[in-house]
């Protein structure tokens, strides 16, 4: 074993140790980075629809007799301003699932597919539907109309 070789092998060994240490450091930093990414709060903060509310509009934006169709939890919903107050109804017809229209003149919701008719409480007036439209909770919070799940 010459002096030179020992020197060389020693150098190689320190180099390899350093490489190993470096690689492990990189790995640990990578894992830490992934954990930081995981812990960073995601955009959609509230995930449970049963705990959700949605602002529809300012109260003065919808005059009496008018309605506004919005999406709540992926489903279309009619928010109606009536003389007696506000009503939120699922816009999905209980017959075959078409989206019902709000008829301002006749104060009814009608389904364009099979002519189902619903009154403003969601009850069936005529046509093939058998169950009333699902009602949602609606309330006026200060000057804003807010809807949420649950019986209205």
């Amino acid at each position: 074993m010459s002096e030179n070789e020992t020197e060389g092998s020693y150098e190689r060994r320190t180099f390899l140790s350093k490489l190993l240490g470096g690689a492990l450091t990189v790995g640990i930093v990578g894992v830490m980075g992934a954990i930081m990414a995981y812990l960073f709060p995601p955009e959609r903060r509230v995930f449970n629809p049963t705990r959700r509310r949605m602002r529809v509009a300012r109260a003065d934006e919808i005059p009496i007799g008018k309605g506004k169709q919005v999406l709540f939890d992926g489903e279309p919903v009619w928010v109606l301003h009536l003389k007696g107050g506000w009503i939120a109804l699922s816009a999905i017809c209980t017959h075959q699932g078409c989206i019902v229209h709000w008829d301002e003149k006749r104060l009814m919701l009608n389904c364009p597919c099979h002519a189902g008719l619903f009154d403003v409480n969601g009850n069936v007036l005529a046509g093939p539907p058998r169950r009333p439209l699902k009602r949602l909770r609606v309330s006026v919070v200060r000057d804003e109309i807010v809807i949420g799940p649950g019986e209205g």
Partner: peptide, 15 residues
């Protein structure tokens, strides 16, 4: 909330 939160972890939380 259990199912929804797991759904959330899988879909919304990064990684």
């Amino acid at each position: 909330e259990a199912y929804e939160s797991v759904f959330y972890i899988i879909n919304d939380v990064q990684l």
